[in-house]
Nucleic acid binder design. Structure first.
Length: 220
DNA sequence: GACCAGGCACATC
DNA sequence: GATGTGCATGGT
């Protein structure tokens, strides 16, 4: 018997296909991207990542070696560049201090201990921490976001006032603990949120329209 | 010109 | 503890 969330996953995957999020990027670049993408369009992030590459600075030690203003200028296209400069430096400093700048060492850390450490880093909240765990380190961390909240609350599967961890617990309880499922589902929920869930109360073309409750609205 | 994008920390009540 | 606000660029 399939859970509602598994059905959501299947229908989204059928409609949109695999999203291939962060497939070819290095784990370090994923970590950097996870910070830069906070509340920001991915296109803008790509520009900043490209700037880092062009400056030969896609490296924890090199990022830390840049002076504040240099790094700010590289990150500028990603928006919030003063804050993100601080946040990225905090993360890189943590990475170097606790894991000697080694992805392999960090990958060996216990999932929930590492998560707790990440949450203690300035600028790393639950979504960014889970994105790093999942997309950079292949840990089974389900990432949820505002799109996930919108879709699940409007369909009546969670309360509108559910917080990050309640929403995450709900999804996890309805899914196999599987890295590729978590990876794909998060990306698919972002895709459906971008494509629909806006302006009109009921999107007939939405792959989840048949799951909308009587009188429920998918926008607004 | 308004609104939005793969959040988070901090101030204020 | 809950609620509000600043952060910044680039695309639609």
């Amino acid at each position: 018997m399939k859970t509602t969330t598994q059905k959501v996953f299947d229908q989204l995957l059928d409609s949109f296909g695999p999203q291939h999020w962060w497939p070819g990027n290095s784990p370090l670049e994923v970590m950097v991207g996870a910070v830069l993408v906070q509340s920001t369009n991915w296109k803008n992030v790509e520009q900043a990542l490209e700037n880092l590459h062009a400056s030969d600075a896609m490296d924890a030690a090199r990022i830390l070696a840049l002076d504040e203003q240099e790094l700010q200028q590289l990150l500028r296209p990603a928006g919030y560049y003063r804050r993100k400069t601080r946040r990225l430096r905090s993360l890189m400093q943590f990475f170097v201090e606790h894991y000697a700048g080694s992805i392999e060492l960090m990958r060996r850390a216990k999932h929930f201990e590492l998560r707790k450490q990440l949450l203690a880093v300035h600028g790393i909240g639950p979504e960014t921490a889970d994105a790093i765990l999942l997309y950079a380190l292949d840990k089974p961390a389900m990432v949820v976001d505002t799109y996930t909240h919108r879709v699940f609350a409007r369909h009546g599967w969670v309360d509108f006032d559910a917080d990050y961890h309640q929403l995450q617990a709900h999804l996890v309880s309805e899914l196999p603990e599987d890295v590729s499922t978590y990876n794909e589902l998060h990306a698919l929920l972002v895709q459906v949120g971008k494509s629909y869930c806006r302006k009109v109360p009921r999107c007939e073309a939405c792959p989840l329209v048949d799951m909308l409750p009587e009188g429920g609205v998918c926008a607004g």
